[in-house]
Simulated assay, not measured.
Amino acid sequence: MAISMMEAYGIELLKAHALSFEQVSEQLKENEITFPIDESFDFSVLKSLYDTDFDTFKQAYTDIYTIKFLTINGLRNILHMRFHIPVEQYDTLEEGNGLRNVPASADVEQQIRTIVSSNWKVERNGQTLTLFV
């Protein structure tokens, strides 16, 4: 089950504001999207996912997801939004195709391995990860 980068951003933004799946579902179901968030995010992308593939939406919101077409900047954003890992805590590979020294527990590593699309490689180096395409 894979979702788009924008769908992942929307989910992580709502979860960061402690909105439950039930709260979000109710608003999407009623098409009255008035989340108490100051961000200017267009939640219509989540409404579309909710309407077309509810099961994928539910799993992505309540558990884990894979991001299709994940970019390096998208990965940086998800590391920050979902795992609270700021960009200052890791390095960009010289080739520009990945990140190294990303601090991650075994649990976070497993989640990252699920989130990144199949073209990404994840290698453990002690207490950190290297992620690259």
Rank of each mutant, 00 (worst) to 15 (best):
K68P: 00
L70N: 05
N77I: 13
N31G: 03
S4L: 09
I115E: 01
L70I: 07
K121F: 08
V122Y: 11
T114C: 08
L75E: 08
D53T: 11
A104Q: 07
K121W: 04
N101Y: 10
S40C: 04
S117M: 08
F43M: 06
L46C: 07
L99E: 07
L13M: 14
F83K: 03
L93T: 12
M6G: 02
Y9H: 12
T66W: 11
E12L: 12
M6Y: 12
T66G: 08
R76T: 09
L70G: 02
Q111H: 13
L14Q: 04
L14D: 02
D42V: 02
N119S: 08
Y50N: 06
G96S: 03
E95S: 15
R76K: 15
V116N: 03
I37T: 05
P103S: 10
V45S: 04
L46R: 09
F83R: 02
L46K: 10
S25A: 14
G74S: 05
M81E: 13
Y90F: 15
G98D: 04
S105D: 11
W120T: 02
S25F: 00
S20R: 04
L131T: 01
M81F: 15
L28H: 05
S25R: 10
K47E: 03
E30S: 11
H84G: 04
N101E: 12
L14A: 06
V108L: 11
A16R: 14
E123Y: 09
T62L: 13
A8D: 06
Q27E: 02
F21Q: 06
R100S: 09
W120F: 07
V45A: 07
N97D: 13
M5N: 08
G98C: 06
R100P: 00
S25I: 00
K47R: 11
R100I: 05
E32P: 00
S118Y: 09
